[in-house]
Design a protein around this nucleic acid. Sequence first.
DNA 1: ACCTGAACACCGTTCAAGT
DNA 2: ACCTGAACACCGTTCAAGT
Lengths: 220, 220
Amino acid sequence: MSQSVPQRPRVGRPPRISREEVLAAARRIVEEGGVGSLTMRRLAAEVGSTPMALYHHVKDKEELLLLLLDDYAAGLARPALPEEPRERLVTAALAMHDALAGCPWVVEVLVADDLMSDAGLWYAEHIVEAAVACGLTPEQAVHAYRSVWYYTAGEIIIRAAGRRRAAEDRPTHRERVFADLDREALPRLASIGGRWTALTAEDTYRQGLEALVGGLLPRA
Amino acid sequence: MSQSVPQRPRVGRPPRISREEVLAAARRIVEEGGVGSLTMRRLAAEVGSTPMALYHHVKDKEELLLLLLDDYAAGLARPALPEEPRERLVTAALAMHDALAGCPWVVEVLVADDLMSDAGLWYAEHIVEAAVACGLTPEQAVHAYRSVWYYTAGEIIIRAAGRRRAAEDRPTHRERVFADLDREALPRLASIGGRWTALTAEDTYRQGLEALVGGLLPRA
DNA sequence: ACCTGAACACCGTTCAAGT
DNA sequence: ACCTGAACACCGTTCAAGT
């Protein structure tokens, strides 16, 4: 009677590390240095084990990244969305952007295996739904979602790369090029000159999003 | 008198491979398998030499990629642009997109080191110029250019990744997820179901671009 | 001047063996 | 059942030596 929940008898060597431990360590590494810095060997060192022990807890590196993704997605806020469909679309897109901006490494994984796991689909669902509510056909709504996704992913990827470049302090290729622009051939860029870097560092995601959505939806 | 152009006397061992040869081989590799498949060792094999011989012709792998980029950019068409500024903006953006779409590996390099070399700046110049001609301030025009660039780069990157995924034929994570969608939580996506893949495979770059540009520019 | 070979410090992953 | 060690097939790059 005392054994009413039969603990499936664990046999063999007791585990020294758990899947959760491995994932937690992977998360730490990836948050600090991006996906590029996550190696099985470094991860093993982080959990105080050998590279091969990891393969007992995850299938391979790809599965590890997908697990990390699910994990991050599961913790995302799902904000209340406004009644008005156009606002609803913009709010959902902004929430999607925020979710990614907080965690740029996610995008690298997303792009590689397209579309997030369940938690990420929540954004797609509401963007498509709001687009339909605005008067688009389901097909048009999917296309509209895609445009928003391209814009959003591009913004995240490019700005993340920019931050990475700023972190290494060596001058970038771009700066060298902008330093001596041909005033004849490229007058507008030349006249902007040094302000380019500051201007492109400004966050204009929302502006661009509103413009895009305004153009995608039928005139109110 | 016969030596009027003194051939700076070449001394030492005669070269077996040239920089051009190295670049041409690198281009072949990258066109076939993407940037990921370009390794110094494979490149050496391709030119029939050793990895270390390459370092005599290019500084390192990064320089190699930038040279490849310059090279590609130098060969790009610079289409005649229409008089009407809004059309001019759209045409320049489409040309930029075409230039990248023909060569998705370029985007990986671009994103990593931001902005292309001179030839690529041509697009930026004309987009910014056209935006100003449409009535934006130079600052607004740079922001508009950035939005177009985010959208364009995102489209190229995501679609390139999609093609790569389609090439390997194993079922993607996405397909597995879409196969069993929760009809309660994600009704719109569920009702689209199997059509999702076909819909997102359609090329809607131009549509999205027109929408974005329409939203970015002042009402005509 | 140009090229080679051996070496260093890395990768992800498989396989056979230990506890 | 879980972990280890050695090994395989890779990377980019440095360094000392050869022609």
